[in-house]
Amino acid sequence: MKDEKSRSMVTPGEAVGTVAAQSIGEPSTQMILRTFHSAGIASVVTTKGLPRIIELVDARKRPKFPMMQIYMEKGIANKYEKVREIWRKLEDVKVSSVVSQFEEDFRTGSMVLNLDKERLALYEINPRFIVSKLSKMESITADVDGDAVKVKVKKKESIKAMRTTFVHVLNASIMGVPGINKALIQQNDDDTFYITTSGSNMEKVMEIDGVDKWKIYCNDPFEMARVYGIEAARNLLANELIGTIKEEGLTVSFRHIGLLADAMTYTGTIRSAGRHGIAGDKDSVFARAAYEETVKHFINASVFGEKDPLRGVAENILIGKQIGLGTGKVKLAVKKEDIKKLKSKER
């Protein structure tokens, strides 16, 4: 057992970073630059292929298509009605999404919202519910007018101001979690249900009763780090990377990806693998200057009187010294002269 473990260890001085970079870089060149997304109702859109990898490695603050998977607590997971109740609370429904047609009248400062009955039925709401939500807004009054909703401004203003108010009304959120554009109920093989969403908001989703708070998946590393911690973000990064690569039919050993994810997260925050992240935080002035923005780094170094101990790979190649990796890692502990001295003593 111990032997197996020690045999699995990387040899000291192995250039793990370079090998990882090569191992990830090589299949990436073969990946097709696929940015398009498939249109469809039954699936949640995500970025795929090389663009997704770039998104992850560059540590973009928000992915292009954030996504969540929400699992239910044990008792509820297999009951469709209960899951549907939670689903109802998720999708961010705006006034405009249930309105089929609206008429503005700037003379009286009012707007009539004709509602889409099919939509209302889908979200299981009625005009009264919308009115109750709208009445929270301070500048307007809202009333039910038959099947429609009538909105009137409290104080008549300029047309431009009224128009802005009406736009606010149309964009007002009636129900759901802000940030979640669409939610879909999906079924597992074991007849339990879970919900996938496009758009994410982990904090708010956790507040909903019945949601398994320990099992929310989100494809945004920053949100993951904020809610579940940096370890979770590290695992997310690694899994997303390897998943994206696998999807293209390519294979990269997890160790390389894991190393990249570790390098990006070990400081406690997520750093990108570029000039503002890992490469930009290097200790050596020369290593940073060799990468990008040469002049900036030299000037800053001179201002702060930086010292470069020349320990890294890039610096040593630059000056022409043997690098401290592989065969350059080891040094003789005993010097030649010492051996001679020892030998002469033995005599």
Binding site: A15, V19, V313, Q322, I323, G324, T327, G328
Partner: peptide
């Protein structure tokens, strides 16, 4: 250069 670094062939690289 990266290939040699990856192999740890420091003297060949030098």
């Amino acid at each position: 250069r990266d290939a040699l670094v990856g192999h740890g062939a420091s003297l060949l690289l030098k």
